[in-house]
């Protein structure tokens, strides 16, 4: 057992015993060695289920929305991107800061369980870092109450020297027709399971337009045009608010490069409104969520 796991368990047990939190959200081991799904711990004696390993891929921030009106606090563990998710929810006024206790983890990068499928536990080291971690600029949580490990080179993922907007550049190199063909093919595959939406901390509307098919805005027909309309609407809705946790793309069963779309928008926003990283600071307002007279579009 690694020391971080031990620390997590001890702290969780203590918080629950003292009644500091109602319950703890962390990760536990799944059926397979490469699965570390979310877990909810209510009793101190269950704290031993908590674990930390490289498959703790899920961002737990979103669960705070399920218990907004809880009397008392929720304790949860946050990696770098999870913490940006917390800031996302705070900035969107979805949750109140005094309702949860954050236990920060400086994250060495996590691995996508789907990429470990078929490998044996002896091949553990061969599982690549999750795509979403390759360009991570914030392995340290940007918000926490207690930090469980120290930042340092050891926790820095070995990232390739790749550029953050590499995929976007490839897309921009295409002709408009090629680009159209590319996205049409991707969204032809979309099954509208809405996993990308439901896992996204920026998708925090109380009621989503896509859950109201009677509204008539979008058809339920699973066809390229309707699917793409969904994808585009969501991309625009999280524009300037996407925290780049990459969960949408990771969970997509149909392999749609959703982050390429999000990153294209981030790149454009950066060029138009100046560099901005969503969820890093509570004070810096999202570029599309502020009103300023020096806005390029203000006249």
């Amino acid at each position: 057992m690694n020391t971080l796991t031990e620390k997590m368990r001890a702290l969780a047990r203590e918080l629950l015993e003292k009644g500091e939190v109602k319950y703890i959200i962390g990760w536990e081991k799944g059926s397979l060695w490469y699965q570390s799904p979310p877990v909810f711990i209510d009793r101190p004696e269950d704290a031993g289920r908590l674990i930390w390993d490289e498959f703790c891929v899920n961002n737990l921030a979103k669960y705070l929305l399920d218990d907004k009106y809880l009397e008392g606090r929720v304790g949860l563990f946050v990696k770098g991107c999870d913490a940006r998710g917390i800031n996302r929810l705070l900035q969107d006024r979805q949750v109140e800061r005094d309702k949860f206790y954050l236990m920060g983890i400086v994250c060495p990068g996590v691995k996508d369980p789907r990429q470990a499928a078929g490998l044996s536990i002896e091949q553990r080291e061969e599982v690549p870092l999750a795509a979403k971690c390759l360009y991570c600029a914030h392995p340290e949580p940007v918000v926490y109450d207690v930090l469980l490990n120290e930042a340092g080179e050891a926790y820095r993922p070995k990232r390739p020297a790749g550029e953050r907007f590499e995929d976007v550049a490839a897309l921009e190199a295409m002709s408009p027709d090629e680009r159209y063909e590319f996205w049409a093919r991707q969204y032809q595959r979309c099954i509208r399971c809405y996993a990308c939406r439901n896992v996204c901390p920026a998708c925090n509307c109380r009621e989503c337009i896509f859950d109201r098919s009677q509204s008539g805005w979008v058809g339920k027909r699973m066809a390229g045009s309707e699917n793409a309309f969904y994808g585009l609407t969501r991309a625009w809705h999280v524009a300037g608010r996407c925290i780049e946790c990459g969960e949408c793309e990771r969970v997509c069963p149909m392999g749609i490069p959703i982050m390429t779309l999000n990153k294209k928008i981030i790149k454009e926003l950066n060029e138009l409104f100046g560099e901005y990283e969503a969820g890093v600071s509570l004070e810096a307002e999202p570029p599309l969520g502020r009103y300023r007279t020096d806005d390029p579009d203000f006249s």
Binding site: D66, R192, C193, A195, V199, V251
Partner: peptide, 13 residues
């Protein structure tokens, strides 16, 4: 049910 995100992935697959 607590960890379920309420998406439809399982039902479609």
């Amino acid at each position: 049910c607590r960890k379920c995100l309420g998406c439809g992935l399982c039902t479609y697959l």
